[in-house]
Design a protein around this nucleic acid. Structure first.
Length: 412
RNA sequence: GGAGGAGUGGCCCAAUGGUACGGCAAGAGAUUGCUAAUCUCUGACGGUUUAAAAGCCGUCUUGUGGGUUCGAAUCCCACCUCCUCCGCCA
């Protein structure tokens, strides 16, 4: 959520930000509602003040008090209505992009910053991961389809062990940096999901919702971790407060009919290791770069070729102020595919979730939040299978992971 | 799922219809002088002022939302969370 004071004082800045992001919003309507809300509030406060004053007199002027009471009762619903409408409009505004974010309409205008890692040379025609996996019995989407429908998969045999290895490897590497390990609940109350900024009109249909219990399934551990400190006040000395979360993620993939329909690249359920940080405003940009750096370090260590992409204003996630994606080389497709994402959300999520910290001087301030993929496991396994396939049909295990898998190739 | 109990500042706790008691902890300031002590201040929000603050004005704050009342922590209704027991269960 954006600061109403900022909107009041700087409406042009907000309008410009929304325009860049391609959000159609009526800022003037918000300003008008805000003004009328404050007027009503003032009126009601005056009445209440009067009520208190008269309430201490003896004998009680009952007639006047009743009159004031009725007047307040009449105004209160009006105020509530204004507040709710204003809140609704405020929640519909996306975060403002930081200055260095490239302006653009959609993913075509994202900017590739750099490419890292040498593409593997194959002296044979590399196969796609699904062909390899089915032959080695690592992935079964046919039976998953039978029991659950499309966009599900069984992960089997060495692929499962590879997942566990990747998890242990990642936690080993990152816990050194002050991350606290965490496994969050993957079901959230609507107001918490709303607080993360992942319930915009576009995002909403992407979520699974359990009607009977009024709970959303998390699409990423970012959501429950961000909401964890809702309505709480953190201590300045605990910041940055970093979490390394593991969770299963659920996505409806509603808008992606016909896209990546084969295999497990785009599925309704996958596991992911996610970095998250609550930090001070002045350190959030640096924290964001730090997350990107960690992502790259992990990728370099398991030696997968990738490119870093700076996401343009029109393609950023709703709560993001700046976003980088990492795309990993997939030989069978001859192109880079998205495997990681990291965003700094400034105080956008913190305002919605009311997460503040008390500074040394005692002042309350909203924290900034930063999130980033450590590894989306399904897609990483895909990338490993494709990039590490051998001529004889086996798959080599990246050296850094061998210690964790206990074998150096598949079949082992 | 059933029965019972409980939710008051960071923590502990008092108040049964009339200004929310007190203690502990932590932070800031002052004083003394040395491994600390003493004293003072410290809930949130809105408005106003300001370079920023202090200040000033007001409202809100006893799990949440309603209701009764001139007035609710207190009475009524619904919901949430936690605890105990029963049932079920990895």
């Amino acid at each position: 959520m954006l600061d109403i004071k900022l909107i009041r004082e700087n409406p042009e800045l907000i309008k410009e930000g929304c325009r860049k992001r391609g959000a159609r919003v009526d800022i003037d309507r918000i300003l008008d509602l805000d003004k009328r809300k404050r007027e009503l509030m003032h009126k009601i406060e005056q009445l209440r003040s009067k009520q208190k004053e008269l309430g201490s007199q003896t004998p009680l002027p009952l007639k006047k008090l009743k009159q004031i009471k009725n007047e307040i009762k009449k105004l209160e619903p009006l105020l509530k209505e204004k507040e709710e409408k204003l809140q609704e409009l405020l929640l519909s505004l996306p975060n403002l992009p930081l200055e260095d974010v490239p302006e653009g309409k959609d993913e075509k205008e994202n900017v590739v910053l750099r490419r890292e890692g040498d593409l593997k040379r194959f002296d044979f025609k590399p196969k796609d991961y699904l062909t390899i996996s089915e032959k080695l019995d690592l992935i079964d989407v046919k039976r998953a389809g039978k029991i659950s429908g499309t966009r599900f998969g069984f992960l089997k045999k060495e692929a499962v062990l590879l997942e566990f290895a990747l998890i242990k490897f990642t936690f080993d590497r990152l816990l050194k940096y002050g991350f606290s390990p965490i496994i969050p609940p993957v079901m959230l109350k609507p107001e918490m999901m709303e607080g993360t900024g992942h319930l915009s009109e576009k995002d909403r249909k992407e979520k699974y919702f359990i009607e009977k219990d009024q709970l959303y399934l998390a699409g990423t551990a970012e959501q429950p971790i961000a909401a964890m400190y809702a309505n709480e006040i953190l201590k300045e000395k605990d910041l940055p407060l970093r979490y390394l979360g593991f969770s299963t993620c659920f996505r409806r993939e509603a808008g992606s009919y016909g896209k990546d329909t084969k295999g497990i690249f785009r599925v309704h359920q996958f596991d992911k290791i996610e970095m998250f940080s609550f930090c001070k405003p002045e350190e959030s940009k640096q924290e964001h770069e730090f997350f990107l750096n960690l992502q790259e370090r992990l990728m370099k260590e398991i030696d997968l070729p990738y490119q870093v992409v700076k996401i343009c204003t029109g393609d950023m996630g709703f709560p993001a102020a700046r976003q980088y994606d990492i795309e990993t080389w997939i030989p069978s497709e001859g192109r880079y595919r998205e495997t990681h994402s990291t965003s700094v959300c400034t105080d956008f999520q913190a305002r919605r979730l009311n997460i503040r910290y008390r500074s040394k001087t005692g002042k309350l301030n909203f924290v900034h939040t930063v999130n980033g993929t450590a590894f989306a496991i399904g897609r990483t396994i895909i990338a490993i299978i494709e990039n590490y396939q051998q001529k004889d049909g086996t798959i080599k295990i990246p050296e850094a992971l061998q210690k964790y898998t206990g074998f150096s190739q598949i079949p082992s």
